Amino acid sequence: MIYGIGTDICDVRRIRASLDRHGERFAHKILSDAELVQWRARSARWPERGVRFLATRFSAKEAFSKAIGLGMRMPMSWRLCEVGKLPSGKPTLVLHGGLKDWFEARSLTAHVSVTDETDYAASFCVVETN
């Protein structure tokens, strides 16, 4: 049964402006430690790819927060929600700490899709009860 559905569209230009204004501190606020490693590697090779990576993660976490009905209040936080990928390339959510405990206590499962195109990143998340 569906517990919640969330969607988000993010203006990549807004993310770029935040990075220009706040530098790595902005990325550190949004990304988990594992995501930060990926973001730095992508940014070093091609800065625009790093911006889009950050925008898709921002969007996916917003969509997830809407699907679980918490918005950005505890136990939901940017860094406790990580967007990973399966060997097939399918995106998946990896939760940590109190958010993981909260999610598992409710026997929930999440499905997420992310995309980006020039100026926008978009995400869709469905959370189900097991």
Rank of each mutant, 00 (worst) to 15 (best):
C125Q: 02
G97Q: 02
D116K: 11
G97T: 05
P47N: 09
L99N: 10
D101K: 09
R25I: 10
G6V: 07
I9Y: 01
P91M: 09
E35C: 05
A67W: 08
R52L: 15
A110I: 12
A55G: 03
H111M: 00
Q38L: 09
W39E: 04
L86D: 13
E117L: 03
I2N: 10
G6R: 08
L108M: 14
G4R: 03
F58Q: 01
F64Q: 07
D20M: 08
H28D: 15
I5A: 02
C125I: 08
I2V: 15
R42D: 10
V114C: 02
S77V: 15
N130F: 13
P91C: 07
W78F: 00
K29F: 03
D20Y: 04
A27R: 04
C81W: 05
P91L: 08
R52W: 15
M72S: 08
T129A: 11
L86N: 06
H96I: 00
V126I: 13
E35A: 04
S88T: 15
R13V: 05
E82N: 04
S88G: 02
I30H: 04
P75L: 11
L19P: 00
V12F: 00
R45P: 09
L31A: 08
K90D: 10
V51L: 10
E104R: 09
P87A: 05
A67L: 01
A41C: 12
P47T: 09
K29V: 03
T109R: 13
Y120R: 06
S59R: 12
G98L: 12
K29C: 08
